[in-house]
Simulated scan of single mutants.
Amino acid sequence: MRTIKRLCVFTILLAMASLSQAKLAGKNVVLVHGFRASDIENRPSDSSLQSLANSYWSEYWNQSGRAEKVLYWSSAERVTGGIKDDIRRQLTGIANAGTCANGCVFVTHSTGDLVTRYAIRNLGAWGLSSKIKVLAVLDFAGAGGGTELADVAVGVSEGEGWVNSAQRSAIRTFLGFDPQRGQLGVLYDLQPSRARNLATANSGVPRMRFVGTGWQYAGATKPFLSGMDDSVVPLHSACGATTAGAYDTCDRNVANNGELKTVSKSPAGIWYNHFPVIMGEKTNHSGVINNDTGSEFTTVKNNFSRNGITVDFQTKTESKWWSWGTKVRWVRFNGQWGSRYNLSRVVYETLNN
């Protein structure tokens, strides 16, 4: 009997541990994935989209019960069309289940930033604002300001005269296929001129930004992006800059590699309630949410709290052999440099306190 009781207690403790892992700062986590080029080419069925969304986050955020809910949508659709319908239906289910009645933290990647911004803006119109409380959004490589790759993709699909072979090759590398006129789905919304005019009204929900400037696709896409970028999203978008521009950092007082110096190519302003938190010099577009390591991280805005989410990354500031006397600020995690860990783990375990 005593052994059975011990087994019962152990089982209960395991269940409690599992439940506690599904929280961030004590709140449920909802994941919103980013752009998936394969949706445009393959047009997956609605029944497949949830599985694809789960796989999208499988390396870190959808492991060990870190998320309570994974939302899905198709990149073959438009934000104000099919994407809106899918997200509204799923948010209605979340509202009815009471998942976010006491507050949720949304975590987005890439285009998920834009999709979530539109959804939050329309919670009231959808009759969900009293049942879904969004405390904060963690945007990884956020594409809320669009990407110039979308402009190039549209140009390639329409056969515009200014498109050259290098641009065609870059888009083919990025998408995995040649884009067709009128069949680019959410890429139309990701053109900077459109993204920056979609659901841009000020919001009371804080957006915490985590960005990178690493290389992906063998660098094929970088020449067509404005300023520094993660090979898909430029800093003007990922940082949350009020205007598009060729920026080298999220803040004029710190470079993307952590050097504490004045950087002239920096945003004049950041969108209301947007907070660039971390930059990873060698972190690429996928690396912000997977298990990639090897990139040092620097903080932009640190040591602040919003709606119960406390941002308090440990850092160390010192001169490096290559910095010529300039101080460099890098994140420390578990007593070591951040480069030993993937960015998402550093963020999750630091904010989950």
Rank of each mutant, 00 (worst) to 15 (best):
I270L: 12
T326E: 14
A199L: 05
K222H: 10
G227Q: 07
D178V: 15
T99S: 07
L91G: 00
L71W: 00
E77S: 14
K84R: 14
L19T: 10
Q180S: 06
R43A: 07
Q314K: 03
F210K: 02
G142Q: 12
Q63L: 08
V211Q: 11
N303P: 10
L149V: 03
G98C: 03
N352T: 03
G325F: 05
D178K: 13
N307Q: 06
A218L: 08
G142F: 05
N42L: 05
G308P: 01
I171F: 11
S295R: 07
S266V: 04
V70H: 03
K265I: 05
L225P: 11
N164K: 11
V163D: 10
K23D: 04
T317Q: 12
S266I: 05
A220P: 01
L225M: 13
V277F: 15
V328S: 11
I120R: 01
Q63G: 02
G185T: 02
S339N: 13
D139G: 12
L19E: 12
G81D: 05
G112Q: 03
G325P: 08
C100N: 02
F224Q: 04
R209Y: 13
F275H: 15
A97V: 01
A25I: 09
A101Y: 08
S74L: 06
S75C: 09
D85M: 03
T249G: 12
W215G: 01
G338I: 03
V263T: 15
L149W: 10
L14I: 08
E296F: 14
M228Q: 15
S51I: 07
K131T: 01
S130W: 01
